[in-house]
Simulated scan of single mutants.
Amino acid sequence: MTVPLSILDLSPISAGCDAASALRNTVDLAQHAEQWGYQRYWVAEHHFVAVASSAPAVLIGQIAAATERIRVGAAAVQLGYTTALAVVESFGMLEQFHPGRIDLGLGRSGQRRKEVERGELPPRPDVPWREVDGVVVPSAFDTRTLLSSPRMRALATVLTQPEAVPPDFGQQVADILALLGGSYTVDGYPVHAVPGEASGLTPWIFGSSKGQSAEVAGARGLPFVASYHITPSSALDAVHAYRAAFVPSAHLSEPHVVVSADVLVADDSATARHLATPFGRWVYSIRAEGGAVPYPDPDTVEPLADDQRAVVEDRIATQFVGDADEVADKLTALQRVTGADELVVTTATHRHADRLRSYELLAKRWSGAA
């Protein structure tokens, strides 16, 4: 079964470059992605690191204006740092400019940090490394140390107003649905999001485990995106939990699952492996050095020491690297195991031309597999 293929872009800043070049590269890649037949182009939300996708709604507007047909969206707005009304109004405005092309993606990353600080986030279960029908399911990486670091706590204060307390994620999703549907009230007074109300937007819920995000997406009958590329240890569990919780809604009559994957394609396997050399170092910077560094040059990047590699082994093992046939085969296995209705792929390389080539080769191979 060949399912639609889409792109998730972080607008990575390469070593020696700047945010301006990364943003220009994002728009250029989106224009090519439309030509190559990708269904969606999603941008992530990250702050204070060497990726330029810090304001998804702004970037989505630029991408949608530079393209004609491809759907453009957020993967995902971090609800812990904003309000339901702000999200509905900003994406409602995008929908007015680009009718039928905007995807509203919602995530709870900001709330997870608060849970860690309060000691409410349990440790990841110690699940043995295994393989499921050709898909690697590694042991879990425990994010508590990363999320509770003094640096992360300090930077998080910049993202919210003083004394602000993020609402419950499920409540924020309910509020967004009410605002979109025109039924939101405060103390009995109606509140109308202009623009946004009656825009036809459908929220997409992004999740990394079988926890609240999967449960909310299922209970609300919304599409769900499982992040195999960030949390490969728990993505399959997340999909199962979503399907188990699913209740039909006005948005969906049956579950709709998207699964993400890290990929890197080149004309031959050796070239792909060389271009992927910096990936482990880059992920290590995210997990152990305070945030993503500028994406290193594969020709000069220093190899990881054994203890450093152990921190990122799960991500290295689940990055799909090779020629187009090899990567397509791995994506097919991931789709088969998860039953995904769509796949979304993300690629980081030092040189923009290599990233373009990766997506082009994969698109041609994927469409040829139909």
Rank of each mutant, 00 (worst) to 15 (best):
E120T: 04
S285I: 00
A276E: 04
V132T: 10
S367R: 13
G339Q: 08
W282L: 00
K364I: 00
T67I: 06
R220I: 00
H350F: 11
D325N: 09
H240M: 00
L275K: 10
F91H: 08
V186D: 07
D354E: 14
Q78P: 00
S358A: 07
D307N: 12
V258A: 09
I7F: 07
V247I: 13
S21E: 14
A156P: 01
R315C: 00
F141H: 15
F246M: 08
A270N: 05
P296C: 13
V116K: 10
A324N: 05
A66Q: 05
V77F: 07
R144D: 03
L362D: 02
A52L: 11
S233N: 14
T2S: 12
Y41N: 06
Y189P: 00
S213A: 15
M93N: 11
A266C: 10
R365P: 03
V216Q: 03
E45W: 06
Q161K: 14
R130C: 12
S199F: 04
S21H: 10
R287H: 01
A66S: 15
P294K: 07
L159R: 14
A75C: 13
A164K: 08
D299H: 12
A44F: 07
S109P: 02
E289Y: 00
P296E: 11
R220S: 14
E131I: 08
A317P: 00
